[in-house]
């Protein structure tokens, strides 16, 4: 069972919702922070990191002894990452997408590959919850390979909670694809609504069922609720604005630590998801851990 927590707009409380969902599930949960540009789950979860490994893309290395500068690699590469000039072949590793085309088509077998590091994946535990996150190296543009590496650590016997990046572009799709259910976190403001609409269309396009959590539900207006009703999108929960939650979050406390009464809200969200997915994978996960 994989539940992705996403939000069109940043700063709506996506990480707060993902972490509290994981803590409510306890030992049944595995929390994976796929917001690799700005991973924040660890600040709230304070995990004990047990191992870490670098993640990279394979980039070309040229054996000058074999290279005849025939130019084939430059013809194949669509990213300007390998360029024959005069009697040398230049490589630009930061432009390389790691497709392997240059090595594959080199008639002299003069190209091998080495890993260029994009970031690290760290694995550990936060109390009973299994924890995984990725950290993109600063100045690095390519998030999706690192997101895929974090997702490769999903344990099928657990209920995986994925904290997806904000927005609706490529990294978000990489993070949510393959999920059984997506929880969209939004706030009832014109910005929240606009970004929700974009993200909802992207996720429904993937054929994944979704529900909405309206955070700070009493600020702003009612347009988000109206939109959900008109699109028949279930509202899983409404969490009113609370200064105590905001202050607690700012110091690194979980939402359910600041407002313990919300434990019931998260249990309700989980039962709504269980109902909506009615998935065998869900039951399997529950049985395995009980």
């Amino acid at each position: 069972m994989i539940i992705s927590v996403a939000s069109g707009k940043g700063g709506t409380g996506k990480t707060s919702i993902a972490t509290s969902l994981a803590v409510v599930l306890g030992s049944r949960a595995q929390l994976l922070d796929c917001d690799v540009e700005e991973p924040n789950c660890h600040i709230l979860m304070k995990p004990l990191i047990e191992k870490s490994f670098p993640v990279g893309v394979p980039v070309p290395v040229i054996d000058k002894g074999r290279c005849t500068v025939c130019g084939r690699c430059g013809e194949v590469c669509r990213f300007s990452a390998i360029v024959p000039i005069g009697d040398v072949v230049l490589t630009f590793p930061e432009l390389c997408h790691g497709c392997g085309g240059c090595a594959l088509f080199c008639p002299e077998k003069a190209i091998t590959e080495t890993l260029r590091e994009l970031g690290v994946v760290e694995i550990g535990t936060a109390g009973p919850v299994d924890f995984v996150h990725g950290r993109l190296r600063i100045g690095e543009a390519m998030a999706p390979p690192l997101i895929r590496a974090v997702k490769a650590k999903i344990k099928s016997e657990k209920i995986a909670i994925i904290d997806a990046p904000p927005g609706a572009s490529c990294p978000v799709i990489t993070a949510v694809s393959g999920a059984d259910f997506v929880v969209m976190v939004t706030e009832p403001t014109p910005f929240g609504l606009h970004d929700l609409q974009i993200a909802v269309n992207a996720i429904l396009g993937l054929g994944i069922p979704l529900g909405v959590v309206v955070n700070r539900s009493d600020i702003g207006d009612s347009a988000v609720q109206d939109f959900c009703q008109s699109r028949r999108i279930p509202i899983l929960a409404e969490i009113p604005h609370s200064r105590r939650i905001a202050e607690g979050y700012s110091s690194g406390h979980l939402l359910i630590e600041s407002e313990p009464s919300h434990r019931a809200t998260f249990l309700k969200i989980l039962s709504e998801i269980e109902l909506a997915t009615a998935g065998t994978s869900w039951r399997r996960a529950s049985c395995a851990s009980s």
Binding site: E37, E38, L136, G139, M142, P166, S169
Partner: peptide
């Protein structure tokens, strides 16, 4: 743009 990736750069 938000973040530290490609769009921000």
């Amino acid at each position: 743009a938000p973040g530290v990736g490609c769009p921000v750069i």
